[in-house]
Amino acid sequence: MKIKFQLNGQPVEAEAPIDETLLDFLRNRLRITSVKKGCDLGECGTCTVLLNGKPVRSCLLLAVQIDGEDVTTIEGLSKDDNLNPIQEAFVKEYGFQCGFCTPGMILTTKALLDKNPDPSIEDIKIAFEGNLCRCTGYDQIIESVLRAAKLIKR
């Protein structure tokens, strides 16, 4: 099925097989490999994309469902090496280790801060509950989000 949608602010037209998840479609057809497959069942958060600004699980969407919608992946956050403040915060606060959960974490941060520029730790925990990280123990992720909030406000 032919679909048209906005990807990181750019219009995209592409052929999407009906039985393909958005995750597989982004990775295999559009080569957006920052969206990761950690479980394929909605349990881990590595496949997070923003659908009309909200974080969702791309492994639990069909590609054809995004026809006419707006999708953001981490590529939409920065151009070249000019980091977005959220990315800068993750670098400075060591909010990543193996990095496999990181694109999902950063997109989740974006959605959270867009809605709530001054989140409490409790707000952060609720927003990140579905994003597993096996490496960091989460503290430095929380600190990254807090620093990002500060950087954006500046």
Binding site: G45, P55, V56, I126, A127, G130
Partner: peptide
């Protein structure tokens, strides 16, 4: 119920 991003859908 589930997690925030799941509840978005």
């Amino acid at each position: 119920l589930a997690s925030h991003p799941i509840r978005n859908r």
